[in-house]
Structure formats: structure tokens, C-alpha cells
Design a protein around this nucleic acid. Structure first.
Lengths: 225, 225
DNA sequence: TTACTGATAATAGTAATGCTATCATATTTA
DNA sequence: TAAATATGATAGCATTACTATTATCAGTAA
């Protein structure tokens, strides 16, 4: 028996469920490669169609537009990451250890997960670093949020926030600290490789230093006195 | 005598210096309003031209494309903010007090600065919150960085970083902490108003709570033992 | 006064983008 | 076997993101 991880996605993310057809899976797979290669701005459904060997019109049957596809991809990622967090903290009771695991999962380039064969999580991670915030930094954020499109992100944030409160129930800003470490795990990575003077690890390009920074940030903030 | 604050901008940011002509100033002024109103994605030079009452072609003489204009606007903002930081920390010797001032300047909606008549800093601040990261989250970031287009941002980061080291010369991550508080001053604001469950101040919409969070974050991190 | 310069307006044009619509055909499913 | 569904092929269209050319007008230097 082959174990297949199926992530249940919000129906509003798509017009037709891409996980249920061959073309749908190709759309996800190829869009991840193309966005990674040329960036989201240069990405178009026409180029994606040519890459897949299908037509624009066919892709529009799955997604309203490229921004919706980006939201879908990011939502998929956050769902997957929350699942990773759940798995990797399952049998840990010490909240400090849990938090360290979480930080590592957030900040580390992941190995490809064979359970989701048609998605390359490593490349996906890099996309989320460079393009992830563009999913919500728009004028439609409130409307999209009403459709629950950002629920996976918010769920992950809530989960991390609860681990923080496990460690120190008195800490005043668990959610803001969560969103801070999520975003900073990505921004510090982007800065390290692209604008190194905004970080303290520019010359080393050593991702473990980002982990050290985040651990230091988190634990000094939530330390009980 | 009227005091006029002229911010010296990098020549590579534009094709023709917009500060030196009436049309140029109108381009900046109206683009800030339009980007604020409709978001950067919906912003085009055609719409800007119609709004100003000029032609697309005229605007293209000042800026290569809308992304360059965004970089210009963000660079202007970071220049201006660094100037604000300099002014407001000038006679303060206590680095802790300095840092608090800096955090307040980063996180607070600014009052309109009469010294720069043709720019509305308050609206500009909101643009930077929602669109600022799009200036560098692109495939051209390295190239743009070589042209020094992000220097104002990096200068501000370096300045804050030096205040951090003044407070605690032993602290290991002054630059990463600086970029973290700069970005988080904005992201927590965006989240508070648009995705409130990612913060701890969603119901209050109280910007001073962002300041409390950032102060807590910074000072617990850099505290000497 | 004339001639030159620089800035802008007016107009035109082009390739690419971001869609929508229609119809034919292949495949699945009832 | 008929009906429903998915895809492909093709067309079309308004907008976007530019580039190029020419004309006009204001300021200034000779």
C-alpha cells in the first residue's frame, strides 16, 4: 500500500479541484517551477499553458487568475507545514523543545516529501520565501480573508502561538510573536541571499544561523522571570 | 526664508529627476495617491497619466516602468525616515531611549511633514506597509541592489543596528534584529487591520500596542545579563 | 530678433497580457 | 448507449506596457 497525503483544500481556492485531474496536477507542478524560475510577476497563464502543452482556456477552468493560483499554492504550503509541525512535535512534551523544532521547520530548506509526489517542497519553500507575502499584500485581502483563503496560515500561526503559551502562559504577545517568526524565517533567508547587509549572516550563507537568531529572539522574549 | 528639505536621490532611480520639474512632482504626488487607492497591481502609467492630465509617454521619460517608480518611492521614504530618526535622536545619549524613539517612528503613523510639501508622508507610510516589500521581492533584486537602489533601506538598518550595539556591544544579531523590527513594524500593522488573528491587538486596532510588542521583543533580546 | 534647447503634448503603433466565448472531440459514468 | 464532463482548438477583445515620431511652447543665449 502506498501512503498518499491528500491535503484537503478550501473549495473557494479554485474553480475546479486541481488535485483530482491529471491536468490539474500538471498545473500545480509546472506553475511552481515557472514561478520559481521567472518570479511571480513574469508568470502568466499563457506561458504556463505552453509549458504544460495545453491552452490558456484550460487553465482558466481551474483558477480564476494567477493571483488565485498563488493563494492556492501558499495555502497548500501552510497546510503542509502545519502537518509537518504536527508530526515532528507529536511525542515531545517539553514546550521549549517543541518550539525549537518548529523554528527549525520554518527556517530550514526542506527535503522533498515523497508522500506528495507531484509537489516539490524544496522549490515550493523558496517560492514562499520570495512570493508568499504577495498572496495577502493586496487590496482584496479582506474579501479573500472572508472566503477563508488564508486559514492555513492563520491555523499555523495559532498552533505556534499555543506552543508559546504552553511554555509561558503569561506571555503577552503569542500571536504577534508567531507571525513574526514565521515571516522572519523567510525574510532573513531572502535577505541573507539577496540583501546580505540586512542580516548578520551575509558572508556565511549558513541557514543554521537564522535558526540561532530566531531561537535567541523567541526564548529571550518568552523567558519566565 | 522657507526651509525646504531636499532629499538627494540616487541617479539610477529615475531617467529624469522628478524633483526638478512640475510634472515630475505631480508624478510622485499622484502615483502615491493612486497606489494607495487601488494598490500597486492595479496601478498603471496610463491611469496615472489620465489622473495627472498628461500622457503615458511623458511619464516614461521619468521612470523606466512602474516597478522603478515603486523603488523610487520606497527609497524616498527610507531616506526621509532615516532623516526623522537622526533628528529625533540627536540629543539623546541614552541608547535605550534612542531605541524607543526609533521604534515609535517606525511603527507610528506619521504626521504630514510640511518641509516636503509635495509628499503626503502619512499616505506614503501606508503604501510602504502594503507595498514596500514588493520593491525588493523580485527576480531583479540583485541587479537593482548593485545599482544601490536599496541603499536608503540598508542605511536605516545599519543606523538602527548601531544603536542596538551602543546599548549592548555583545549582542550577536544587530542587523537581523534591525531588519526584523523594521519589517514587523509594518507587518504587524498590516495584520492588525487586515488579518487580525495574526496579532494580539486585532480587536483594539491600537498602534501603541505594536510599539509595546516591538519594545518587549527588542529589549528582552538585547538585554545584558 | 533669431536660433537653440529642453520639456511636454499628441498621436500612432506593437507585442504581450488577461481574460471570455464557442464549438468540436475525446473520455468517463450512469 | 446516452448523457455528462473534460479538454483542445480557435477566435476575439480590451487593457497593459511599452517605443517612436513629430509638433509645440517656454526660456534663454547670441
Amino acid at each position: 500500500m502506498e501512503l498518499q497525503l491528500q491535503i484537503k483544500m478550501n473549495e473557494k481556492l479554485f474553480l475546479r479541484n486541481p488535485e483530482q485531474t491529471e491536468l490539474g496536477k500538471k498545473i500545480i507542478l509546472h506553475s511552481i517551477f515557472l514561478i520559481h524560475k521567472n518570479g511571480f510577476e513574469a508568470f502568466t497563464f499563457k506561458k504556463l499553458a505552453d509549458d504544460i502543452g495545453t491552452t490558456e482556456a484550460s487553465i482558466y477552468r481551474y483558477f480564476e487568475n494567477k493571483h488565485r493560483l498563488l493563494i492556492y499554492i501558499t495555502a497548500w504550503y501552510w497546510n503542509w507545514l502545519e502537518y509537518q509541525v504536527t508530526v515532528h512535535t507529536k511525542n515531545i512534551t517539553d514546550p521549549a523543545l517543541k518550539l525549537k523544532r518548529v523554528i527549525r521547520l520554518l527556517a530550514t530548506t526542506v527535503e522533498d516529501d515523497i508522500k506528495t509526489s507531484y509537489v516539490n517542497e524544496n522549490i515550493l519553500h523558496q517560492i514562499i520565501i520570495a512570493e508568499g507575502t504577495k498572496a495577502y499584500l493586496t487590496k482584496q485581502v479582506t474579501e479573500n480573508n472572508k472566503d477563508q483563503l488564508f486559514k492555513p496560515y492563520k491555523d499555523l500561526c495559532a498552533k505556534i502561538s499555543s506552543v508559546i503559551l504552553e511554555y509561558n502562559p503569561e506571555y503577552k504577545f503569542p500571536k504577534s510573536l508567531s507571525s513574526t517568526i514565521i515571516e522572519m524565517a523567510h525574510f532573513q533567508n531572502f535577505f541573507m541571499y539577496n540583501l546580505p547587509s540586512l542580516t548578520d549572516f551575509g558572508n556565511t550563507k549558513d541557514e543554521s544561523k537564522i535558526i540561532s537568531f530566531l531561537e535567541d529572539l523567541v526564548f529571550s522574549s518568552i523567558k519566565k522571570l
